[in-house]
């Protein structure tokens, strides 16, 4: 597969919650190694769109192909596909009954059959990378939000995913902690991870994104590289959004 081939392909996605149309005919392709930041006002469907990529949200119609697997093909094992797609949540969602180290080793041991020793080796290396090695034996309640989120990123990475999804990873954090999490994400981006990020962090979007996707009212309004997006937005809706936020 060449670098330009999309590793994620969403085609004509529709999704409603009752009478509310969350997504209307959304199509989006993300290439392997590409970093896409999804922006938009709240309620614009960005999180819902992100969550369809690992089927935490089922769609009403449309097709989703991740790394060659059609998510709604009954012969595909969704759990295997999810192993390839890491996800980071706004509320961290570390397993509260387990230490940081056990949070990282649970899935690799149970799902990939790693020995405990091997899984811990991998986990400690990842904790080193996110600056959390000295917190390995702590429980989530003993950690700050920023620490929890860094551990949660490491937990997702422990499965060695091909794609990482970030659902407003810093929205629940205060500014200092936001930076420590963003630093980890920047490092990850530099290493060539395919990333889809829903965020309000404009600095991060500017620095890291290959492409900005702007959504409003369940549709993609505009897509462009960050320089174009922030300096010469095409749509009036985008211009209004940027004016309010910058």
């Amino acid at each position: 597969m060449s670098a330009a081939d999309p590793i994620i392909r969403l085609h004509n996605i529709n999704k409603s919650f009752g009478a509310f149309r969350a997504l209307t005919n959304v199509s989006l392709e993300i290439a392997a190694g590409e970093k896409v930041v999804i922006l938009g006002p709240s309620g614009s469907g960005k999180s819902t769109l992100l969550r369809t990529i690992n089927r935490l949200e089922d769609v009403d119609s449309g097709t989703i192909v991740v790394d060659g697997h059609n998510l709604h093909d009954p012969s595909e094992d969704i759990n295997r596909i999810r192993m390839e797609v890491g996800m980071v949540f706004q509320s961290f969602n570390l397993f509260r009954h387990k230490t940081v180290l056990d949070n990282l080793t649970l899935a690799p041991i149970k799902l990939k059959g790693l020995t405990r020793a091997r899984a811990e080796e991998v986990a400690l290396a990842l904790l080193d990378k996110v600056g959390m090695r000295d917190r390995a034996s702590h429980y989530p309640v003993q950690l700050s939000g920023g620490q929890q989120q860094r551990a949660a990123i490491a937990r997702a990475l422990a499965m060695e995913p091909k794609i990482m999804l970030f659902d407003e990873p810093t929205s629940a954090l205060d500014p200092e902690m936001t930076n420590e999490v963003l630093e980890v994400m920047v490092t990850l981006a530099r290493e060539g991870m395919t990333m889809a990020v829903v965020s309000h962090e404009m600095g991060f979007a500017r620095e890291v994104a290959d492409r900005i996707v702007f959504m409003d009212e369940g549709s993609i309004v505009e897509q462009a590289p960050p320089t174009t997006f922030f300096t010469r937005p095409e749509s009036p809706r985008t211009r209004l959004f940027l004016k309010q936020i910058l």
């Binding site: 690992n54 759990n79 999810r82 797609v85 890491g86 397993f95 899935a107 799902l111 937990r155």
Partner: peptide
């Protein structure tokens, strides 16, 4: 959701 996203059924 965190468990499902890691691949647990």
């Amino acid at each position: 959701e965190a468990a499902l996203s890691l691949g647990f059924n």
